[in-house]
Simulated assay, not measured.
Amino acid sequence: MPIEVACHLNVLVPDMAEPELGRALRTLADLGYTAVVLPPIDPDSAPLGEWAAVFRDHGLTPITIAGQAPGADVSSADPVEQERGAQALRRMVEATAALGGDQMNGVSYGLFGRAPTAAPAGAFERAAAQLGAVADHAHDQGVAMTFEVLNRYETALINTAAQARDFVAASGSSHLRVHLDTFHMAVEETDMVGAVQETAPVLGYLELGQSGRGALAGGVVDVEAVVRAAIDAGYSGRVGLEAFSRSVLTAGASDLLAIWRETYTDGAALAAEAIELVRKAEAG
């Protein structure tokens, strides 16, 4: 079976509004993608049933993104805030299942954004314990839970593949998996290929993002080498495409992600090129 390839919806469109959503999903399905990563959604107000039908009609599996918020943070020293954070994650697990999804990614171990100081003592262990329990719950619901490793400018808690492996071990869960993104790895890893190979046993999502956030063919990341390394190490999970351009994203999302430039103008063309690169790497 060929490896499954996913694409972040924001490569093509800024949000989940129709008719753009349907057109984007049709484009991805025609290109051979089998899954689509959604932008953040509110599980309490989103039309989950309606969206589930749209994904089903296009033959694409949705992948959700789960995060934390001030006052609802699994890494907090406050047990009440920890529980609120865990509750938010469990709610997103339920929403993922309702959408017909089988995977939940995201920065689920703490707050997104550059911290003014190093991670507080105990935050790593607190977050790991909470995520381990949520991952076990998610598994029972048919949802695989991953957590994304970010660079130092977006979190102080987990920046490297080695830290992510330690986090999985500390979680006590056999179901929690790592989400590696080559955009962040280009900042933090001295040996990206080696990091992918060492993480393969607990890798749940390999995301391909180029150093400039645009097309995968141009930048410091050797995309083909990374994909081949993962496959050679026994990884058989999904490979995903992520790229952002200010001309596609909403202004708010662009500001949040520090996307100040128009890194590309044709998301469909970028997605077509990306899946060809993955298939070429897969073929060896």
Rank of each mutant, 00 (worst) to 15 (best):
P2H: 13
A6K: 13
M16I: 14
A17C: 02
R23V: 13
A29R: 15
T34Y: 03
P40W: 11
P43R: 05
L48E: 06
W51T: 03
A53I: 01
D57N: 07
H58Y: 03
I63K: 11
T64M: 11
T64C: 15
D73Y: 03
Q82C: 06
Q82W: 01
T96Q: 11
A97M: 05
A97N: 05
A98D: 07
Q103K: 15
F112C: 13
F112V: 14
A118C: 06
F124E: 06
F124I: 12
E125C: 07
E125N: 05
R126L: 13
A127R: 07
G132P: 13
A133K: 15
V134G: 11
D136R: 09
A144Q: 14
M145T: 09
F147E: 01
R152Y: 06
Y153K: 02
I158N: 02
N159Q: 07
T160E: 05
A170V: 03
G172Q: 06
S173F: 05
A186F: 09
D191C: 01
M192C: 01
V193F: 02
L203S: 09
R213W: 00
A215G: 08
L216W: 13
G218M: 12
V227H: 00
R228Y: 00
A229N: 04
V248P: 08
A253F: 06
L256V: 02
A258Q: 13
A258W: 11
W260T: 14
E262P: 00
G267D: 07
A269S: 13
A271F: 07
E273C: 04
A274L: 06
I275S: 08
E276A: 14
L277Q: 14
V278M: 07
K280S: 14
A283C: 01
